[in-house]
Simulated assay, not measured.
Amino acid sequence: MADLLETAVNAGTFNTLVKAAEAANLIEILKSPGSFTLFAPNDQAFANLPEGTLDSLLQDIPKLKKIVAYHIVSGDVRSDDLVQINEAATLEGSIVAIESADGKFKVNNANVLKTDILTDNGVIHIIDGVLMPAMVAGS
């Protein structure tokens, strides 16, 4: 089985996320042996950001690092776990809200499109939006 990074690269629908993780120097976390959960915005989620947002983030590495880290949770959190929790602490340091209803999940305002893509070092859940930590969103 591949790690989080290889799985994201091989899927072919996370090119922007991988580019952002590389720019933010977070590739090692996605390759490390620890167990992580990645709420992975697909390329369409990044494309839906207001025009110029991504370019501006790629120029502001500290902010970009906070945003990418906000999509990563320590531990292997699968859909069975998502049903039982209403928040999760991210590597960025703040919390994402988890909502579960009718077999569907939301992370903050993003819909979870697919759950439980297993990797060697964790699990990926595909989301349709880019999560913004409050301190970044407000700046």
Rank of each mutant, 00 (worst) to 15 (best):
K31D: 06
M132P: 01
N111I: 00
K63Q: 07
H125P: 06
K65Q: 14
D116V: 11
I67W: 03
L58E: 03
N86K: 09
I29Y: 02
G52H: 13
Q59E: 12
L5P: 01
P50I: 05
A40H: 08
I27M: 03
A21D: 06
E6D: 12
D102I: 00
N86H: 04
S100T: 02
V73A: 02
S139P: 11
S139L: 14
Y70M: 10
K104P: 00
N111H: 04
L38W: 10
S79G: 12
K63R: 15
S35C: 03
D55V: 13
A69P: 04
K114F: 04
E6W: 09
F105S: 05
S56T: 07
N48V: 00
P50H: 08
K19P: 00
V136S: 15
G103W: 03
A20L: 11
M132S: 15
L82P: 09
I85K: 09
K19Y: 00
E87D: 13
G12V: 04
V130Y: 09
I67T: 05
N108W: 09
N42E: 09
I95N: 14
A89R: 10
N86V: 06
V68N: 00
S139M: 15
N10M: 11
P33W: 01
D81G: 02
L30S: 05
V9H: 11
I72P: 04
D55C: 11
G103D: 00
K66P: 00
V123W: 11
K106V: 04
I29M: 03
A23T: 08
V77A: 11
E28Y: 03
V9W: 13
Y70T: 03
N108Y: 08
P41H: 05
S56E: 12
G52L: 09
N111Y: 03
Q59I: 01
D80H: 11
K31A: 04
V112R: 01
V136N: 15
K66D: 10
V123F: 06
A2C: 01
